[in-house]
Amino acid sequence: MLLITCPYCGPRPELEFVHGGEAHIARPTQPEALNDEAWTEYLYMRANPKGLHAERWRHLHGCARFFNALRDTTTDQFVVTYKTGEARPDLKGPAA
């Protein structure tokens, strides 16, 4: 089981968390202006990288807050976690 560092609560076991999918996918500010391709991109298309992945997590059985993490999908190592709203840290991961 992984140890995940919640930016609000500190390191906690993986069982307390749920995965929230790819991070930094902002809801369109003008949904009515989007064409079909842009909607598809927003709703369905995902980077699914082999290497560093910016993703949302939620500390469900703790503070219940969302936060973001950079995790290496080739090792499952959490490189860094950061609060929602902060920019993605400019890191080059081991496999990125």
């Binding site: 790819e22 980077a47 699914n48």
Partner: peptide
Amino acid sequence: HTSVVLGMAGVRLPLES
């Protein structure tokens, strides 16, 4: 690994591994 391979051709897919 489909996302990785098709990424080489610039194709994005609605996939998560």
